[in-house]
Design a binder for these strands. Structure first.
Length: 345
DNA sequence: AATTCGTGGCG
DNA sequence: TCGCCAAGAAT
């Protein structure tokens, strides 16, 4: 039996339940999933686990059931709803993409890889995933799961990312013309549940007889990866101010760069020797303790300063957010940590 | 082509 | 505690 046949047979029984997914039985009856939901889930799933995405997906689809609803949403609402999920450029591009689809494509997603690839925030993986899953196009997805499964199936020892093209070649040879959407999801499910990074469960693998790495005894050490750079530690200062009515002083961060477009506390740059100049005048007092947070490529240690501002002392150029309008859940995680430390001080 | 982008869970 | 890892894209 070919690899794709064995995979689909396994998937028919073991497909994981996901709120954006139409199971193999319904698909067999001709049901295709809503492209909007497939797209939304795939963007959320970029470098993010299924467990982390579930609640966000439910909140987004409850609040914005269609791409037209999302396109009409205010930027701040979408960024606030995305807060905590990370990689905030995804949220900015999500909204851009929704508006292009809504206003330039009549509210319908393109049904081809090439068409999807044109849209903001949709790269090679997501274009292939949406084309295959939502439109049953015979496209090949290449994500971390597929890379790992292919590296093992074909015993590829070339390290990533150099190995990517050859892993893609292998994956394409396995992509069937029928049920390509189920096939794509099957390979990813296999990678997520059986062909895992550490201690793969080869004993229950549906394609073990096709696996070259299993025969060679190298499955657990694949895929090889080139060494990555160590993370430096950076430092910074953040300033948390409150007005007499309980309002808080925040700022909307620049569109580009780290935490772009998100709300945050005013503060210094984050570097080896951050500026110690407060963003505006107040009776700042140091808050005991520090916030530690790790981003993709550096560790951050943040020192906090708090102030109670007098009446009529709201500084210019900031987002003054009322006591009851303020929700920590609108903030990225590092800013939530800062708020928690200040509040509990 | 190499960097820059979050966050939470896991061993 | 700490590095690794997750359904990557943009520049």
């Amino acid at each position: 039996m070919a690899v794709s046949d064995a995979l689909l047979k396994w998937y028919d029984v073991h497909a994981r339940e996901m709120p954006w997914r139409v199971g193999p039985a319904d698909r067999a009856a001709g049901v295709l999933p809503d492209p909007y939901r497939v797209w939304l889930s795939e963007v959320m799933l970029q470098q993010t686990t299924v467990a982390a995405v579930r609640d966000y997906f439910h909140r987004f689809t409850a609040r914005w059931p269609t791409v037209l609803d999302l396109a009409a949403a205010p930027d701040a609402d979408v960024m606030g709803e995305w807060a905590g999920l990370g990689y905030y450029a995804r949220a900015r591009n999500l909204l851009k993409c929704a508006r292009v689809v809504a206003y330039e494509h009549d509210g319908r997603f393109p049904d081809s890889y090439e068409g999807l690839l044109e849209l903001p925030g949709i790269g090679p993986y997501t274009a292939a995933a949406v084309a295959a899953i939502a439109f049953d196009r015979a496209e090949t997805v290449l994500d971390g799961n597929v890379e790992r499964v292919m590296a093992r199936l074909h015993d590829v020892h070339v390290p990533l990312p150099e190995a990517k093209p050859m892993l893609k070649d292998h994956a394409e040879r396995h992509t069937p013309l029928t049920r390509p959407g189920d096939h794509a999801q099957a390979v990813m499910d296999l990678g997520a549940t059986i062909c895992t990074p550490r201690s793969p469960a080869c004993g229950i693998c549906p394609v073990i007889e096709h696996c070259a790495a299993r025969r060679a005894g190298t499955a657990a050490e694949l895929p090889k990866k080139s060494p990555k750079k160590p993370k430096p530690t950076r430092y910074g200062h953040a300033y948390l101010a409150r007005l007499p009515d309980g309002s808080l002083v925040l700022e909307r961060r620049a569109e580009k760069g780290l935490l772009g477009g998100m709300l945050g506390w005013p503060g210094s740059d984050w570097s080896d020797a951050p500026s110690t100049e407060p963003p505006f005048d107040a009776e700042w007092r140091e808050i005991a303790g520090e916030v530690r947070h790790t981003f993709t490529h550096f560790h951050l240690i943040l020192r906090l300063y708090g102030a109670e501002l007098p009446e009529e002392a709201a500084p210019e150029g900031y987002e003054i957010i009322g006591k009851h309008a303020f929700r920590p859940s609108d903030l990225p995680t590092v800013m939530r940590k800062a708020y928690a430390l200040w509040r509990d001080a």
